[in-house]
């Protein structure tokens, strides 16, 4: 969806809500709709990745490798990824020119690949978009967090083995060309 939610008219919001309800009663997993410059994707938990994955700016979402939530049971509300851009963590470039790496999920932050080993990165480490900068552990499942940008680590914002919340800023990186 290219349009931010706030520019939708009341009528458009109502129509989307109606689509959500209709979809909920249907047998389809998701629905994609394109009306002029408005693109809507509504899904029941098995929806395709939202189009907003390619968010503007140097930040790119880290792909969680861990198995995420399973099935949506009966009472599960329908999710509407289409409206998420406004709400999802989108840490744009900070005022000081750094780019933030945020937690893709709740869990425990690990700065090192194993106890006693050197940390993945420290302040001053040069990284490429694919560099692993940390691990996040949820119930013994570890997910690598990648830098997402070429640059130099400017700050590590959390302590090793600390609980981090979804969307929490982990690391700041100063991009380089």
């Amino acid at each position: 969806m290219n349009k931010p939610l706030s520019t939708l008219t009341d009528d458009e919001v109502r129509q989307i809500a109606l689509l959500v309800e209709t979809l909920e009663r249907s047998t389809f997993d998701y629905l994609q709709l394109e009306l002029g410059d408005l693109k809507v994707t509504i899904g029941k938990g098995n929806a395709p990745p939202p189009a907003n994955a390619a968010a503007p700016g140097p930040y790119s979402a880290v792909q969680p490798a861990a198995p995420v939530a399973s099935v949506a049971p009966a009472s599960a509300p329908v999710s509407a990824p289409a409206a998420e851009p406004k709400l999802a963590p989108q840490p744009a470039a900070a005022q000081d020119g750094t780019v933030t790496v945020v937690a893709p999920m709740i869990g425990r932050f690990y700065a090192k690949p194993e106890p006693g080993a050197a940390p993945f990165v420290s302040v001053g480490t040069e990284v490429t978009p694919d560099s692993t900068v940390a691990l996040i552990e949820v119930m013994k499942v570890f997910t690598a967090v990648r830098a997402g940008v070429k640059g130099v680590v400017a700050e590590i914002c959390v302590q090793d083995e600390q609980l981090v919340e979804y969307g929490q800023v982990l690391i700041r990186i100063r991009p380089i060309e």
Partner: peptide, 16 residues
């Protein structure tokens, strides 16, 4: 904060 607005990634994620 355990996940995104969409319940599948938050309120329905027992690991989170």
């Amino acid at each position: 904060c355990i996940g995104p607005a969409s319940a599948a990634g938050s309120y329905l994620n027992f690991r989170a």
